[in-house]
């Protein structure tokens, strides 16, 4: 079972066991990681599941779609080069140990 590590804005860290096939957003919202809002429920529409992917991991993710790139222009917190929408990151066994940092706001 892959483990995902969420680093919160107050530097607390949360390790969560995830199921392959779920998205990082689903893992967060079903494990009380409240910094992920996910208003649209994972339909790539609202830009409220923004995360900063740890530098060491960013290149190992599937590349983002044009739609995700456009939505990231509208995120509430600052967009950085390692910004992604967590609903668009599908968990695979290779992502065991993935580290993401959570922004301080989504809206």
């Amino acid at each position: 079972m892959p483990t995902i590590i969420f680093n919160r804005p107050d530097n607390r860290s949360e390790r969560v066991d995830a199921s392959a096939g779920d998205s990082v957003m689903q893992v967060a919202t079903t494990h009380g990681v409240d910094e992920i809002v996910a208003e649209c429920g994972g339909n790539a529409m609202c830009a409220t599941c923004h995360v900063y992917v740890d530098e060491g991991w960013i290149a190992r993710l599937a590349p983002m779609s044009e739609e995700e790139d456009e939505l990231l222009h509208g995120v509430a917190a600052e967009r950085l080069p390692n910004s992604r929408l967590s609903c668009q990151i599908k968990i695979t066994p290779e992502l065991d140990g993935l580290v993401v940092r959570l922004p301080d706001r989504q809206i």
């Binding site: 919202t29 208003e39 429920g41 339909n43």
Partner: peptide, 23 residues
């Protein structure tokens, strides 16, 4: 309540395109 996942705006490719205006 954690409301994510409700289908008040639908879901999938036809999910309300104006949901951000509504919110």
């Amino acid at each position: 309540r954690k409301t994510s996942g409700h289908v008040g705006y639908g879901s999938g490719i036809h999910m309300c395109v104006g949901q951000l205006v509504a919110r």
